[in-house]
Write a protein that binds this DNA or RNA. Structure first.
Lengths: 135, 135
DNA sequence: TCGGTTGGTTGGTGACACGTACTAATTTAG
DNA sequence: CTAAATTAGTACGTGTCACCAACCAACCGA
């Protein structure tokens, strides 16, 4: 019995999230932490700004960053421009782990599309890109 | 800049999950609870079986069901066939909430596809269905 | 310079997930 | 037909993660 659009998208999201969680578990990372590391790849935001990227309250960010900092993945530093702001950035160890996770996620997610032709994969990429409003 | 397949799927999953979380929040339901209610729509599983559907450990299910039970959404009952088994089913209130959530989720998720033509929507549904291995 | 705003942290609460340890019921072996 | 092993579920402790409210320090505008 074919799925309707809603069920298909919802189920797909669960499958992808499970893939992310599985990869994360191999490195003791939660999905949220993976997202955070991803954000930090090419940014050095303040706590509040980081929270905006992740859709989290600032008080949630404090703990998230503290746990990652305790593991040496991330670093807090003072902003030279604003004494209130705490900038967050990847440490070398964090950057290394991020790179490794990136590869693992790529493999795992691409494996999900193994039954698609490359044409279908391109089509899916385009459609997903439209929905998420790629720039 | 167009996204690659992996990023597109990952971002799409976050967008859909956020939609689910938003709808859930309107009814004080987490995404996990929404999933659980969805599973129970047409089943009356034991705790362990429910855990298998959700990919959760049995010890996680105890709390999940207890919280829903406390809210009157779900009911525990003894299995007539196996004295060890606790069957979980929706109460009328739970069924009502599930139906309301279903409509809200449909609206919210379909809204995500508003920039797609109906042909694209059908294509996306088919591709997603292939990935999740619809039966 | 003083009052308001902004950025972060702290502390409290609650959901959720896991592993371990335990009980009760069932099944299997001998 | 009992004794041992397995199975279903709960209880408890730990940790992540999310929120809100209260707070402090730094900044900014009048």
């Amino acid at each position: 019995m074919p799925l309707n659009t809603v069920d298909a998208l919802v189920q797909l999201s669960f499958v992808v999230q499970r893939a992310l969680a599985t990869v994360g578990a191999e490195h003791d990372l939660s999905v949220v932490q993976i997202r955070m590391l991803g954000v930090l790849r090419d940014r050095e935001p303040g706590m509040l700004e980081l929270g905006a990227y992740l859709g989290l309250d600032k008080s949630s960010i404090t703990g998230l960053v503290s746990r990652a900092e305790r593991r040496g993945l991330v670093r807090r530093s003072a902003s030279p421009h604003d004494g209130r702001v705490v900038l967050v950035s990847l440490t070398p160890a964090g950057r290394e782990l991020t790179a490794a996770g990136e590869v693992a996620i790529r493999d795992r997610v691409l494996a999900l599309t193994e039954h698609l032709t490359s044409r279908q994969r391109a089509e899916l990429t385009m459609l997903a890109g439209t929905i998420v409003g790629e720039d």
